[in-house]
């Protein structure tokens, strides 16, 4: 036998093996506990006919690979004011056997403008991707998921409180870590007998734990209302006399980096005046008086109401209407 050739063959094998070791764990790997049986059969001629012989059967059991990924499902920093905020994460069992994961939320991430307070970690029990208080189960300490099957994913929510002292545009990160309950450690660490069906559990390349960051940005938004009046009397002047027309302007300035929801501006018609039908307008565009599909309604009895809905910070909305002095 040529030793040189053999050595070269071994070296080629090695190079390939090193590459294999460096590849990531297969999320769709064969299930832990699977028994791999190997038997060879040979036929040969013994001079009188064909003989068949079987080898022994070698059986190996596939070990459980411990691997997990955590990702933030938030599309970007969550806009939040002081009070409760919810961050959304996804846990995926990247191993090849059933495993539960302990969850740890860390509010003190380097670079934070402020730190939130972790209130709880909840599981998306109804699977709708949105935290539903009273429906989605809040985990008790130590916060641990149910057993996830291989490749199974789970959406979890980290509920935090933003402190009252947080300033507009301040940012804060929260780090969620998931660790295999069987154990974590350096890749290749073996937990004998701790895998599926009594096999070993082996720590995967990721150390059997993973973390992801969810971000918050504080958006404190205020609405400042300013009301002004302009008078035109029946004689072309500005005297306040019976028959004079008063144009009221309500200016709603939205101040801050966030936005306000469900903003409705209402005003009563002052005593001793009468609303001039058809004069309600938003930013110069007329609104009907009737309660209908447009955002405004007005009457002498109930006053005016304009539903501005969600309004972004940094904008100003002007509402105008006329009354006559009785």
């Amino acid at each position: 036998m040529n030793t040189k050739v053999l050595n070269r063959s071994l070296f080629a094998t090695l190079t390939a093996a090193a590459l294999t070791t460096g590849s990531p764990a297969l999320a769709d790997g064969i299930s832990a506990g699977t028994l791999i049986e190997n038997t060879a059969t040979a036929t040969y001629d013994d001079g009188t006919g064909v003989q068949t012989v079987d080898s022994n059967t070698v059986v190996v059991r596939v070990d459980e690979l411990l691997a997990v990924t955590v990702t933030s499902l938030d599309p970007g920093p969550i806009s939040a004011g002081p009070g409760e905020a919810v961050l959304t994460f996804e846990i995926i069992n990247q191993g090849n056997g059933p495993e539960a994961f302990e969850l740890t939320a860390n509010p003190a991430v380097a670079g934070n403008d402020f730190d939130t307070t972790i209130e709880s970690i909840a599981v998306d029990t109804n699977g709708n991707g949105t935290f539903d208080p009273g429906v989605d189960v809040i985990l008790t300490r130590p916060e641990t998921t149910d057993v996830l099957q291989a490749d199974e994913s789970l959406t979890v929510f980290v509920i935090v409180t933003v402190p009252a002292g947080a300033s507009d545009t301040d940012e804060s990160d929260v780090e969620l870590t998931a660790s295999a309950v069987t154990g974590t450690g350096a890749p290749g660490t073996t937990f004998a007998g701790a895998g599926a069906d009594g096999g070993d559990a082996i720590v995967g390349t990721g150390g059997a734990e993973d973390s992801a960051i969810g971000s918050l940005i504080v958006g404190i938004t205020d609405v400042e209302l300013t009301k002004s009046a302009a008078v035109i009397d029946p004689f072309g002047g500005t005297s306040v006399v019976p028959g004079s027309v008063v144009t009221f302007t309500i200016s709603a300035a939205i101040v801050g980096s966030g936005s306000v929801d469900n903003l409705t501006v209402t005003d009563a018609i002052p005593d001793d005046t009468t609303y001039v039908p058809g004069t309600l307008a938003l930013n110069g565009a007329p609104l009907t008086d009737a309660t209908d599909t447009d955002v405004g309604e007005a009457s002498d009895a109930t006053g005016i109401s304009v539903d501005l809905g969600t309004v972004a910070g940094g904008t100003t909305q002007a509402i105008t209407f006329d009354v006559t002095i009785d």
């Binding site: 090695l14 070990d63 073996t190």
Partner: peptide, 21 residues
């Protein structure tokens, strides 16, 4: 780096083994 065949101890997905006869 050198390689040798040893008794296997790890059987996880992605593990390389030598089946011999």
């Amino acid at each position: 780096v050198s390689s040798e065949l040893v008794e296997p101890t790890v059987f996880t997905p992605g593990t390389r083994l030598s089946f011999g006869l």
